[in-house]
Amino acid sequence: MKNKDIFKVLIPILAVVIIVESILVVSRLDRSKPVDVIIPEVDDELTEEIVELRQIEGKASFVFSVEDQNIEVGDKKRVTLEILPKEDFNLDAMDLYVSYSADSLEVSGLLEESGLKATSKRVSDKTGVVLANFWFMEEGGYKFEAGKSVKLMSFMVEPETAGVYELSMVESGDEVTKLVSSIGDEVVTYGFSSEKLIINAEN
């Protein structure tokens, strides 16, 4: 009899609990409808985007050389730019941009080296840039061999005032140094390293 009484209380309580829970679930379902699609997950897809131009790292180094880095004001010394390939590669185009302090250095006598012929070359005292675009017309481009340095261009440097000046490859901005090649139908650029040339101009 006592057991029967417990059931009489338990069953209604259970019923009420289930009803309340059902109402809660139903209201939640209504609020989150429809939900077939969630927020776009852009991050995952970013990796799928087509990249502009593939760059292959570390193919070569650019090296400046000069007979003597200590140059007297009014004296001229020829600076040579060489490329030192770290591995074999071919280039279809090489755009070289060297920056210098046009206020203190005068640059002249720009020459191509190693029998290379520049498509375009300039010394700009307006912008402080020495540039040479080597575009290789031959099929397959120009072959560079690992460890075999190639002189590219040279120019005279004359300090106008005493001080410490540097020449360096232009690597940022609109017009930058580029090593360009084609692999099949793909155009790629090769990364490179370079060191600055320090000029000590003395009176």
């Binding site: 069953i11 019923a15 289930i18 059902s22 679930v25 379902l29 609020r31 409808k33 939900v35």
Partner: peptide, 28 residues
């Protein structure tokens, strides 16, 4: 009355369980 109520509640529970419930974040 309570027995009927209980049966109704159970039936509703069964129906809800059978439905796919969206538990992810991201409702519109």
């Amino acid at each position: 009355l309570f027995t009927v109520l209980l049966l109704v509640a159970l039936a509703m529970g069964v129906i809800l369980v059978q439905q796919t419930q969206e538990l992810r974040k991201g409702a519109y």
